[in-house]
Nucleic acid binder design. Structure first.
Lengths: 238, 238
DNA sequence: TGTGGAAAATGATAATTATCATATTTTTGG
DNA sequence: CCAAAAATATGATAATTATCATTTTCCACA
C-alpha cells in the first residue's frame, strides 16, 4: 500500500473524503461522474514546483493531501509567501477565470497528492453548474477578506507582532502534532518570507520568543507554549 | 441641472454609460428591466462613510461617479487603505457572497453617486444569470492577483519604493487633469495610509521626491514630472 | 476676505530592522 | 551512518523608519 496512486487519491470523486471541503461539495452524481472521467491523479514530491508564476495553466488542481505554498517573487528575487493551501483547496482557478497569467508560483512543502482537471472540463462544470461557480466565488470572496487582513498587518504591525501572529495562524491552519508541535515544517527563511522580513531578523525574534518561554523549538519543530501572551504580542483580539 | 439625481444617474440601467465597465455588462434587457425597478439612486458627499467595517450589508452599491476608498482599521485605529474604487465598481458583494461581515469600511473621497441594489435583487440576478456570477468572479479573481502584488510590495519594498509605486498607481488608476496633476485629491495622511508608513515619513519622502524634481506639489495637487525615474525608484518593470 | 483649525513641513532623536560576518548546528543525500 | 551542504544562531554595525516637538502653510467657512 502507498505505492499506488489509487490508494492515495480515490479514482472517483464521489468517493473523495475531501469533497465536502472543496468547491465540488454540492455537485450532483452526473457532474461527479464527468469530473472523475476527466481528472487525472498527480503527485508532487516535497519541494517540487506545481505552478510557475507568469505561466498560463491548462487546468486546475484540487489538492487531496499534503501542503503547498503560494508565493510571488519580489524585485530582488525574494519569495513572498502569500498563503498556504491544503486538502480541498483549488489551485489555478484564479488565472483561468481572470484570463491572466498565474499571479504566483506554487510549490509543495510536503509530499502532495492532487487531482488535475483540464481547463475544458473545469469550464464545462462551471457552465453546467451555477452552484459550483458560486462555491468558487464564495471562496474567492473569503480569500479577499483574508488578504485585506494580511495587507493591514504588513502595513501597520512590527515584525515582532507579525511573527507572533503568523505562528498563531500556522497553528490555526495546520494544527499540532501529538507532541504539541506545529504540524508544518518550515525553514526560518520561509517563516521570514511570510512575515515579510530578513531571515536573520526572523531567527533573532524567534530566539527572543524562546527566551521568553512563549515558544520552544527544536530544529524546525516549533511548539507554542503560551498562546495567550503570543496573542497579546501579536495584537490580535479575534 | 445637477440638482436632480435623475440627471446624475440614469433611471434605467440600460441607459447607464458605465454598464459595460461593470459586472452588469452582458445582462439581457429583461434582467436590466428588473434591476432598474429594484435599484435606488443614492448620493454621498465627500467624506461620508458608505459602509462600515464589521457590518452586514443589505445590498450592494454600483458606483456611477465619484471615488471611494476601501480601508481597514489596524490595531491602533490607523486606517489602512486597501484600494480605491470608481465608476462601474461593485461594493459589498464580497460580504454578501462569503456571508461574512464587511471586511473594510468604504468612504467617499469625492462626491459620489451610486445605485443601491438590495440583497434579494442581487441574488435574484445571480440565480437567473450565470454570466453575471462569472463577471463578478472574474473581477474577484483579478482583485486577488492585485492584492498579491500589494502584499509583496509591503513585505519587501522600502517605504520610498512603495511611495513611488503608489504615485504611479494613482496616475494609472485616476489619470491626470489638464494641468497634469493626478486626478485625485488625497491628504498626506491618506497617502501614508496606502503606503503603510507614518504620515511624517510620507511627507518627508514626498519632499525628497520634490527636491529631486521627480514630482511637483501644490497643496494636495501632485504632478508627476519624471515617471521613468519614478519607476526606477519604485522597482517596477511592468 | 480674514481667521481658526487642520494639514503639511521640518528638525531632533529613538527604535526598529537590515546587512554583513562568522561560528555552530541541523539536515540531506549517498 | 557520515560528510558535505544547508540552515540556524549570534554579534557588530549601518540604514531605515517611527516618534515627538515645533513651525509654517493651507483651506474651509463664517
Amino acid at each position: 500500500m502507498g505505492n499506488d496512486h489509487s490508494v492515495e487519491v480515490p479514482n472517483h470523486c464521489s468517493m473523495c473524503g475531501n469533497r465536502h471541503l472543496s468547491a465540488f461539495k454540492n455537485l450532483g452524481d452526473e457532474d461527479l461522474d464527468q469530473l472523475s472521467e476527466m481528472k487525472t491523479c498527480v503527485s508532487f514530491k516535497k519541494g517540487q514546483v506545481i505552478m510557475h508564476e507568469g505561466a498560463r495553466p491548462q487546468g486546475v488542481y484540487c489538492l487531496h493531501s499534503g501542503k503547498v505554498k503560494l508565493y510571488k517573487l519580489g524585485a530582488e528575487g525574494k519569495e513572498q509567501i502569500i498563503r498556504f493551501m491544503t486538502k480541498g483547496d483549488l489551485l489555478g482557478y484564479r488565472s483561468l477565470l481572470s484570463e491572466e497569467t498565474i499571479s504566483g508560483s506554487v510549490s509543495a512543502i510536503d509530499d502532495t497528492y492532487a487531482c488535475y482537471i483540464p481547463k475544458s472540463s473545469f469550464f464545462q462544470v462551471i457552465q453546467k453548474n451555477p452552484k459550483f461557480t458560486l462555491n468558487i466565488l464564495e471562496k474567492a470572496c473569503h480569500e479577499l477578506g483574508e488578504m485585506g487582513k494580511i495587507i493591514t498587518s504588513l502595513a501597520q504591525k512590527t515584525v515582532r507582532e507579525r511573527l507572533a501572529e503568523i505562528l498563531l495562524i500556522l497553528r490555526a491552519t495546520f494544527g499540532e502534532t501529538e507532541e504539541g508541535n506545529l504540524d508544518i515544517s518550515l525553514t526560518r527563511e520561509e517563516i521570514a518570507n511570510m512575515v515579510g522580513t530578513a531571515t536573520e531578523s526572523a531567527i533573532r525574534l524567534i530566539s527572543e520568543l524562546k527566551e521568553d518561554s512563549l515558544i520552544e523549538t527544536k530544529g524546525r519543530k516549533i511548539k507554542i507554549l503560551d498562546a495567550t501572551r503570543l496573542r497579546k504580542i501579536a495584537n490580535v483580539f479575534d
